[in-house]
Structure formats: C-alpha cells, structure tokens
C-alpha cells in the first residue's frame, strides 16, 4: 500500500512538504495508525507530530477524524489549526 503524506505550516517547516510511504504487510489501517507510525520514524517526526498541538488531519483533501480508514493511493495531510481570513 502506498500513501502520500503532506505537511503544512509549522509541521512542513520541520518535516518538508510531503513524503511517500509504502508498506508490504502491516500497513496502518487508519489515519490515526498512520499518525502513530509516522511519529516513530524519527525524533523530528515525533516532535513535529506530537499530541497536544491540536493538529488536524485530512484524507484526500477533506477534513477527517483519526479513525478514517486508509486506502491505496490515499493523500493524508497533517496541519495545525487553520488561521485564514
């Protein structure tokens, strides 16, 4: 399974704009499982994606909860609370 992960704002500044993740077996099943998997990648990931910052998630460019199931080719984004307008 292959998933594109995109980061924005302060998360992007730490981890770059995007990364592609691929798994044979043991792929994360949900956005929340992907989040935990990414946190374990490096100390920078653990810090940039730490809980308690109110990070939001989107699946295929729509806001989603962490229990949303992943699929092959999915685009998942992690970003801080939005501050437009």
């Amino acid at each position: 399974m292959r998933v594109t992960v995109r980061y924005f704002a302060r998360v992007r500044e730490r981890l770059g704009p995007e990364q592609t993740c691929e798994w044979g077996a043991d792929a994360p099943r949900t956005v929340g499982e992907l989040w935990a998997w990414l946190q374990a990648r490096s100390p920078a990931h653990a810090e940039a994606l730490a809980e308690g910052q109110g990070l939001r998630t989107a699946l295929d460019q729509a806001l989603c909860d962490t229990d949303e199931p992943l699929h092959d080719g999915a685009e998942v984004a992690f970003f801080p609370p939005v501050t437009g307008g």
Binding site: T30, W35, A36, G52, G54, T57, T66
Partner: peptide, 12 residues
C-alpha cells in the same frame, strides 16, 4: 468548530 484537539490516542 473543527479546531478541537485530536491526537493519535483518540484513534478508534
């Protein structure tokens, strides 16, 4: 609102 605090811990 959607600015609620979520974390991997809340994954169902």
């Amino acid at each position: 609102g959607i600015q609620t605090n979520l974390s991997p811990d809340t994954a169902g």
